[in-house]
Design a protein around this nucleic acid. Sequence first.
DNA 1: ATATAAATTGGACAATGCTCAATTATAGGT
DNA 2: ACCTATAATTGAGCATTGTCCAATTTATAT
Lengths: 200, 200
Amino acid sequence: MGRRSDHSRAELEELILSTGSALIAESGLGGFSAREVARRIDYSIGTIHNVFGTADRLIAAINTRSFAAWAKSLRERLDAAGPDGDRIAALVDGYFGFAREHPHLWTAIFDHRLPPDSGLTEADETGRSLLTHIVVEEIAHAVGGDVDDSLATLARSLIATVHGHCAFAISGAWALMGEAAPEAAALARVREALAARSAR
Amino acid sequence: MGRRSDHSRAELEELILSTGSALIAESGLGGFSAREVARRIDYSIGTIHNVFGTADRLIAAINTRSFAAWAKSLRERLDAAGPDGDRIAALVDGYFGFAREHPHLWTAIFDHRLPPDSGLTEADETGRSLLTHIVVEEIAHAVGGDVDDSLATLARSLIATVHGHCAFAISGAWALMGEAAPEAAALARVREALAARSAR
DNA sequence: ATATAAATTGGACAATGCTCAATTATAGGT
DNA sequence: ACCTATAATTGAGCATTGTCCAATTTATAT
């Protein structure tokens, strides 16, 4: 069994998070179990609760971690597109990309619900808002405007648009509906919205 | 305890479904329990499994039921709009309406996942496709075209668009992001897409 | 009435999340 | 070096869940 000399508190947190993330990645949120995480890292179930308090809070932390990885990969695709590339396509592809590469992690983000009383940690909140910020700034750049309220509203609406397409694509909701190119459809909707805004 | 003389098989199915639906409506998918349903209808846990086989299949059946109610309310709003009314707005409002009135039931539809091996029943599949059919026909009517592949693709894309907005609105994802009018944004995106199609 | 078929029960099992007294390890002071 | 206080870690215990299935109860047909 694990002893405190083996891992510092920070290391232990990291160990639990990465193991939990791997578990969700391979079994989905439904297959997650705090006890299974404990088994895999060879610590007792009590330790998990000492560090994260609750299985729900652990899952929330794992999801925040997923968010960070998602934002990172999104940023990388934007950088790869370059200043004169098709950055809108990169944005949409970045959204879909992480979901396609890590469907269970991506799905867990949106399937998990905290119990009614408790909300997200401050750290969780800020960690998750990064992705939105990237998109808002990118949309501002695309339409050549400042980041005012109406632009932020548009950006969020575009995120929602892409999200809806991605959610159906990943869940397989329309795998049998014969939808061949959900990402292309999402991109088309985004371009139409941006064109409409520019033509205003 | 329940006896077979109290309820026919069909009545029993209905009793379990409506009780389960009520349970999800008040406690969410996370608060659902087959045993709690059994307690509420005063039958044993074994009976639930005799009728529905598995808790997951019961939840799937409850969700199909929700789908039916959703489609019904959507149809009613379309009828209320009349032939010359704003039927596109009615469509979007119908999507949001059910979600707003029954957030837990609506959320359960998209949160629930069947175990990897088993899929939906034939009955579940057809029951759920109704909503899509309504939208496809309505979009065909709006753009004045036949129901060909490209139109069906557009319709599904619009459903995805509205879905994304609705999902964020109901989950409270952007309640704290200061998003005031998710439904209005969804409607705007749909109108832009339809306008782009008409201008083709 | 009796026999056959079907529905219903509920105890048993494995698994889960969470709690908390007991145990064990670390660090600090003398 | 020893002792002490502080902190980390354990794991048995409890309530709860889904699923199974042998035994029981009920309905129906003969």
